[in-house]
Design a protein around this nucleic acid. Structure first.
Length: 259
DNA sequence: ATGGTCGCAAGGCGA
């Protein structure tokens, strides 16, 4: 089972590039972030015609997540528990039925800038809620994959120019500590497990020629429960999608599981 | 330090 995460930065703008990538990469599951669309506005038919089931959790203009799957999906839940007043569409879960059932958690973690301020407070509170959800799932001792745009530069080697991010919500020590608290529950980063080398990135800003200069950062991850990590076969980044026509500023990251 | 580029949606916010 090949599972990918991809921040597409707007489904309307990616109406050609997303199907093109699916045709080439052929993931069984694609967890999408920043669809920037309400559920009714998501062009599900395009993907259903390609053999994918489509589950969205959208909102107008901003945020929004979705799961595309060529395998059956069950028990879809929308939103991250822990704050009934949170109206931002950043989280969706579903169970994919392959050889083995795998719980999928698709997340778009808040950016958090500017710091300090309410947006940064929201980011840290959201991470506390994600930590609580990870703990709940770990108790179940099932294969699960928590994947998406974490908006965290975990370590300096995950940025081409770490000095530019020192005061940023993506790289502050408090941000990194909150991320590591989640990972330290016992989750395995699929890409790092298979590609420990530095200099792999998943995002290049549209501005200032970041792509041409390879001024990137690694912020998109698939974190695996112990039961999922036992099934890990391979992982990678589809870097070349950034060089295509009308690309997202993120590229897909994927993991192959024996599931 | 500033401005640089996109997406959504139709002006300004978010990244």
């Amino acid at each position: 089972m090949k599972i990918a995460t991809f921040n597409i930065n707007g489904i309307k703008a990616r109406i050609e590039a997303l199907p093109a990538w699916l045709e080439i990469a052929k993931p069984d599951v694609a967890m999408l972030q920043e669809i920037k669309s309400v559920d009714e506005g998501f062009p599900s038919e395009i993907f259903e015609d390609m053999g994918y089931r489509v589950e969205t959790h959208g909102q107008k203009s901003f945020n929004g997540v979705a799961i595309l799957s060529r395998l059956p999906l069950e028990d879809v839940t929308r939103g991250l528990a822990g704050d009934d007043t949170d109206e931002q569409a950043r989280y969706i879960e579903a169970t994919v039925i392959g050889k083995t059932a795998v719980r999928l958690c698709c997340l778009y973690l808040p950016n958090g800038n500017p710091v300090p301020g309410p947006k940064y407070d929201y980011k840290l509170a959201w991470m506390d809620r994600l930590h609580a959800r990870a703990k709940e799932l770990l108790v179940q001792e099932i294969p699960f994959v928590m994947a998406g745009d974490y908006n965290i530069i975990e370590q300096d080697t995950d940025a081409a120019k770490p000095e530019l991010w020192r005061e940023d919500a993506l790289a502050l020590p408090t941000s990194r500590a909150a991320y590591r608290k989640i990972a330290a529950l016992g989750l395995t980063n699929a890409l790092r497990a298979k590609h420990p080398e530095a200099g792999l990135y998943s995002f290049w800003d549209y501005q200032a020629g970041a792509w041409q200069k390879n001024n990137g950062i690694l912020i998109d991850h698939l974190l695996l429960s112990p039961q999922a990590a036992d099934l890990l076969i391979d992982a990678g980044i589809d870097k070349n999608t950034r060089a295509g026509d009308k690309p997202s500023d993120h590229v897909p990251v994927w993991a192959q599981l024996d599931a």
